[in-house]
Design a protein around this nucleic acid. Structure first.
Lengths: 235, 235
DNA sequence: TAATTTAACTTGTACGTACAAGTATCTTTT
DNA sequence: AAAAGATACTTGTACGTACAAGTTAAATTA
């Protein structure tokens, strides 16, 4: 047996969640049903579920079952405070540059590997607004080689991560970030509708994924005046 | 049985680790020894160890045992890039204000509970430097009521968290943070030796602890020019 | 009808057993 | 002396059983 039994079950359940077969807020089959279905004991079923729990795919409720959770977008990342709260109200994402193949830029937020730099580069730019106020300008780069047809793909719910997960079954496995306070240059100031020289926050990001050698590099230029960046961490 | 058996074992092991009874890099008693010592089965022993593993107190090695890890300081927090790398070299912490009892300030980084505000407040200020360059100015507030004799306590290795853990057996269980890019005012500029108006990063923090209703509130004023703030997250 | 009890589910804890597989040491063989 | 094997530990996986405890809905009782 190359793979352990519990990780087989874990993988089956995970991919079904990712593909929406078990939708958000629905319940997974109960532990006893899993036992019968896959001819395993509850110990094994619970170990698979524990893994899903630990990774945030489900939440368990004593006496009820395992409910599929909205996949966390955060992963220890920073999120724009007020963005999620304002959802449904007035949040807009404007594509300044749709995904297209281009050369890698001279400087990335973090150094890329040589093998990555040999592949074509896909890049896109987005402006995130609350109402009429542009708040964040985001530039993303990634290796296009590994995502077939990505340039012509529409984002699911406008979310890049959701698209990665559901369409390509790729998960974010880690991130590295760096924060700097800068003065806005002419271009950024114009986009964010602030004075040139006003203080902005630049977040440099590098995401690792479940696909080897596929990373996502991003710059976020944030006007934190009205919408500070925040995150929470719970043990 | 009010407490579960495995969490009893977990607590015993955890406090022994925290008190240094099981030192860093040493091995915990093997699962079988734990079974014999506490009259439990391996299932229960493993569950307690799993918890310690999940919380980063130990790492397990197939065939060898459970080794006590250096307790992570990060907890998903941001750390100053270059600080840890520069450790042993030239990092200094200057107390601008030693811990003392005072009134709660009018504005905290995050709102405190009423019951907290009824207790005395302990506050202290530190300046973190690399060589001669001041990089971060930090102000901390916490409820003094719950930490007996804290005002007169020296920090273990200069670390506030380490002191909390080892002297008071209090762990950080969560954090909330908010980031803003600001222009340095006169006071901050003087302390950080930069021009007034230069862009700085202000991190507002609220830590939750294992002690109910004890939170730590902080402002970090960071000159990110040479030492950007960073963190990494691994799945 | 309304309140209570029962029954049938669910997950949580804890017991016990067996063997696989990694690590280290001691013993035997070459 | 060096290599190979046996042995005694360790953790990892997986089996099975039993009961506690939370949830829900149907059945019973007042």
């Amino acid at each position: 047996m190359r793979q352990t039994r519990y990780s087989q079950i874990y993988n089956i359940l995970k991919s079904r969640i990712q593909q929406g077969q078990y939708g958000v807020d629905s319940f997974l089959p109960s532990e006893n049903v899993l036992c019968a279905t896959y001819s395993i004991t509850r110990t094994t079923a619970r170990k698979a579920l524990d893994e899903l729990l630990r990774e945030g795919f489900i939440e368990k409720q004593h006496g009820k079952g395992s409910r599929v959770k909205e996949r966390r977008q955060t992963l220890g990342l920073l999120t724009v405070k007020g963005f999620s709260e304002a959802v449904g109200e007035n949040v807009k994402t404007i594509f300044l540059q749709k995904p297209r193949v281009q050369l890698w830029p001279e400087e990335l937020p973090f150094p890329a590997s040589d093998s990555e730099l040999k592949t074509p580069c896909i890049s896109f730019e987005r402006l995130r607004c609350v109402g009429d106020s542009p708040v964040v300008m985001e530039i993303d780069w990634l290796s296009g080689m590994r995502l077939k047809g990505f340039e012509n793909t529409d984002f699911i719910d406008g979310s890049f991560f959701k698209t990665l997960s559901q369409k390509y079954l790729i998960e974010i496995t880690g991130s590295e970030q760096e924060l700097r306070a800068l003065n806005a240059d002419e271009k950024i100031a114009a986009l964010l509708k602030i004075e040139p020289g006003a203080p902005i926050l630049r977040i440099s990001l590098k995401f690792s994924t479940s696909k080897p050698d596929l990373h996502i590099y991003s710059y976020l230029y944030c006007n934190t005046e009205n919408y500070p960046i925040g995150n929470t961490y719970k043990h």
